[in-house]
């Protein structure tokens, strides 16, 4: 589904990504772990064609980013929900859905379904101006879910969320996993990644240092990832 092939990106003299390569097959949930400045968000932005790589290619469904594609990833950037404060949550969701060709009853059914799933019914028709951080994050998640893209990119979606909201997000990811969506999920929370993802890629200073397949481990996934990450940081 997603192939990242030898991506390099520099910002002036700062080598942000150095020959990053990996492949994610359809239906897999992959975690991306790395410290601040490791290059996670830059990698997301390159996959979304927001910025171009200095070298290398990204293929989605076998199609390069510069080709006329039939598949666009749905994206979530955790730093800010990017909602329009004068629109209601439903209007925000509808706007992005319409841009992706989703509309009418199909869209309304999806919005109702996900607002139930994330416990948003009380405020789905309210303007997002006075939403709490968690409410905004949930709205942004529904916004990406209704698009129905087979590839989802989530950049630190639980940042700033309280515990019940994090549980809701985990349920949401589980639901998307069941729908055979391919998900690239970045977070600083190792426990969260180990419980949600089937595989974790550790990115350190723009280089992939580890690619851990968690399917072969039944328990203690958390510790395995922690140990690997600490080893990389110590080096």
């Amino acid at each position: 589904m997603l192939t990242v092939d030898c991506i390099k990106k520099n910002f002036c003299d700062n080598k942000v990504l150095q020959s990053v390569s990996f492949h994610i097959p359809q239906g897999q949930v992959v975690g991306l772990l790395g410290e601040n400045g490791a290059g996670k968000t830059t990698l997301f932005r390159i996959i979304c064609s927001l910025i171009s790589a200095d070298e290398g290619n990204v293929f989605i469904n076998g199609q390069a980013l510069d080709e006329d594609r039939n598949c666009y990833p749905s994206v979530f950037f955790g730093g800010s929900s990017g909602l329009y404060s004068r629109l209601s949550a439903r209007e925000n969701i509808t706007y992005f859905a319409n841009l992706n060709g989703v509309s009418g009853d199909v869209l309304n059914d999806k919005i109702d379904y996900f607002s139930n799933l994330l416990d948003m019914n009380d405020y789905i028709d309210r303007k997002t101006l006075q939403f709490s951080h968690g409410m905004k994050q949930k709205t942004a998640l529904v916004r990406m879910a209704v698009i129905n893209s087979p590839l989802m990119l989530l950049d630190e979606p639980t940042t700033g969320m309280d515990f019940p909201s994090i549980v809701s997000v985990a349920d949401f990811i589980q639901h998307q996993k069941n729908e055979s969506k391919t998900i690239l999920y970045s977070s600083h929370n190792i426990s969260e990644l180990s419980s949600i993802c089937q595989r974790v890629i550790i990115l350190h200073k723009g280089i992939i240092k580890a690619d851990i397949d968690l399917i072969k481990y039944n328990d203690n996934k958390d510790n395995i990832v922690k140990k690997a990450y600490l080893r990389i940081l110590e080096k």
Binding site: L50, V75, G79, S80, L99, N100
Partner: peptide, 13 residues
């Protein structure tokens, strides 16, 4: 300012 521009540009538009 809202950081919504990059989200908008991610769409197939």
């Amino acid at each position: 300012e809202r950081n919504s521009l990059e989200l908008l540009l991610c769409n197939p538009v």
